[in-house]
């Protein structure tokens, strides 16, 4: 099912803690003591409700947290053998150029509205040659668009972002991210804003692209159905901590942590007939909070 485990993971997060400012004198521990690792070619998922710290964890690995001095990171993030906590901006730039790519929920925000999408892929492949329209780069750009599920890439490459549907935009973003040939792709809620039918298409594209380019994947979502269909291992986050991790099938069939159990019960109650709708009871949340503080 999964790749042969290698000795050193591609990315390894140890005891990560992130503190983010929320007001003039307030701050929140968004991520607390998170341990996570992803091996080359592996697909893992992070699930959790909103505010659980899953996006902050993902952004930390790509070095995309706000650069304010009030954002405090502790612990260790090792990407491809290099310690990235405390690394300077140039080192992060290197990581993002060659090793880690990221895609987000809202593709329109990350595309330039006044540049044709083909050129935006070219820019991702070779930023320096982009202005001169190198035919080799253009050809490569079309190949990446084809890989991202566009059967006639020439046509698409001439369009502006506003001329594309939401699902197409998201696939252009996948093409841009994969054009850098990253070793690791972090996808943060890539299909949350899309319809079910379009979602299926984008997920299939994502799965084939990362397999064909042998890229590792971290898929972040609150939708367990999406994560389960795409990944080999899952981390479950709650209140800034990883409360449980394990193989996807084990998490689904035999969850250990009470939060995971409640979460799965509530997800199942939404789709299975003859089961009463179940939401995670307040008592359980209070109990987990008490244990957390202790």
């Amino acid at each position: 099912m999964s790749a042969e485990p290698e000795t050193t993971p591609l990315a390894k997060v140890t005891d990560l803690a992130v503190n983010l400012p929320t007001g003039r004198k307030q701050s929140v521990d968004a991520v607390r003591h998170v341990n996570l690792e992803v091996f080359a070619g592996e697909k893992i998922g992070i699930i959790g409700e909103s505010g659980s710290g899953k996006s902050v964890t993902g952004r930390s690995i790509a070095g995309l947290l706000p650069t304010s001095p009030r954002v405090k990171l502790e612990g260790s993030i090792i990407v491809d053998g290099e310690e990235m906590i405390g690394a300077d901006a140039a080192a992060w730039q290197q990581v993002r150029t060659h090793k880690v790519g990221m895609i987000f929920q809202d593709p329109l925000t990350y595309l330039n509205p006044v540049i044709r999408v083909g050129r935006q892929v070219e820019e991702s492949i070779a930023p320096s040659k982009w202005k001169n329209r190198d035919p080799v780069v253009q050809e490569k750009s079309l190949n990446f668009l084809r890989l991202a599920g566009f059967p006639s890439p020439t046509e698409v490459s001439r369009k502006y972002p506003h001329e594309l549907s939401g699902g197409m935009r998201q696939r252009v973003l996948i093409a841009i991210a994969i054009a850098k040939r990253p070793r690791l792709l972090i996808a943060d809620e890539p299909t949350t804003a899309l319809d079910t039918t379009v979602q299926k298409r984008v997920l299939e594209t994502l799965a084939t692209t990362v397999s064909e380019t042998q890229t590792s994947l971290i898929l972040i979502s609150h939708d367990i159905g999406v994560v389960a269909s795409m990944t080999e291992r899952i981390y479950v986050m709650y209140r800034g901590r990883v409360v449980e991790s394990g193989s996807t099938s084990q998490i689904l069939s035999a969850p250990n942590h009470p939060y995971t159990q409640a979460l799965l019960r509530s997800v199942r109650s939404l789709s299975e007939p003859d089961v009463d709708l179940y939401s995670i009871p307040l008592e359980l949340r209070r109990k987990l909070e008490m244990e957390d503080v202790a």
Binding site: A3, E204, A207, S229
Partner: peptide, 10 residues
């Protein structure tokens, strides 16, 4: 096991 296409790739 995950059923996504290409899940068996290294």
């Amino acid at each position: 096991a995950p059923t996504a296409p290409g899940a068996s790739a290294t």
